[in-house]
Amino acid sequence: MLGRCDTPLREAYDVAVLDLDGVVYRGRDAVAGAPEALNAAQSAGMHLAFVTNNASRPPTTVGEHLRSLGVEASDDDVVNSAQAAARLLAAQLEPGSKVFLIGGEGLELALRERDLVPVSTVADAPVAVVQGYGPDLPWKQVMAGATLVHDGLPWVASNTDMTIPTASGVAPGNGALVRLIADFADREPEVAGKPQRALFEETLDRVGGERPLVVGDRLDTDIEGGVAIGWDTLLVLTGVTGLEELVAADPSCRPTYVAPDLAALAEPQPEVTHEGDASVAGGWRARVVDGALQVEGEGATADWWRAVAEAAWTHLDAEGQPVATDAVRPPE
Rank of each mutant, 00 (worst) to 15 (best):
T273L: 08
T273E: 11
T273P: 05
T273Q: 09
H274C: 05
H274M: 06
H274W: 11
E275Y: 07
E275A: 15
E275M: 06
G276E: 10
D277W: 04
D277S: 13
D277L: 09
A278C: 11
A278W: 03
S279V: 03
S279P: 06
S279G: 07
S279Q: 03
V280L: 02
V280A: 03
V280W: 01
V280T: 03
V280H: 00
A281E: 01
A281V: 02
A281L: 03
G282F: 11
G282L: 07
G282D: 07
G282I: 05
G282K: 02
G283M: 14
G283R: 14
G283P: 00
W284V: 04
W284I: 06
W284G: 00
W284D: 00
W284C: 03
W284S: 00
W284E: 02
R285T: 06
R285P: 09
R285G: 07
R285V: 04
R285L: 12
A286N: 07
R287I: 00
R287D: 12
R287M: 05
R287G: 04
V288C: 08
V288S: 05
V288F: 00
V288N: 04
V288H: 01
V289A: 14
V289I: 14
V289M: 09
D290R: 15
D290E: 15
G291P: 11
G291W: 07
G291A: 14
G291L: 13
G291I: 13
G291C: 14
A292R: 07
A292S: 15
L293C: 07
L293A: 02
L293N: 01
Q294K: 00
V295T: 08
V295I: 14
V295E: 01
V295W: 01
E296Y: 02
E296N: 14
E296Q: 13
G297T: 06
G297E: 11
G297Q: 12
E298I: 00
E298L: 06
E298P: 06
G299C: 13
G299T: 11
G299P: 03
A300T: 08
A300D: 15
T301Y: 00
T301K: 11
T301S: 08
A302C: 07
A302R: 01
D303R: 04
D303V: 03
D303S: 13
D303L: 09
D303E: 14
W304Y: 13
W304P: 01
W305I: 10
W305C: 03
W305K: 05
R306S: 03
R306M: 11
A307F: 10
A307C: 10
A307E: 07
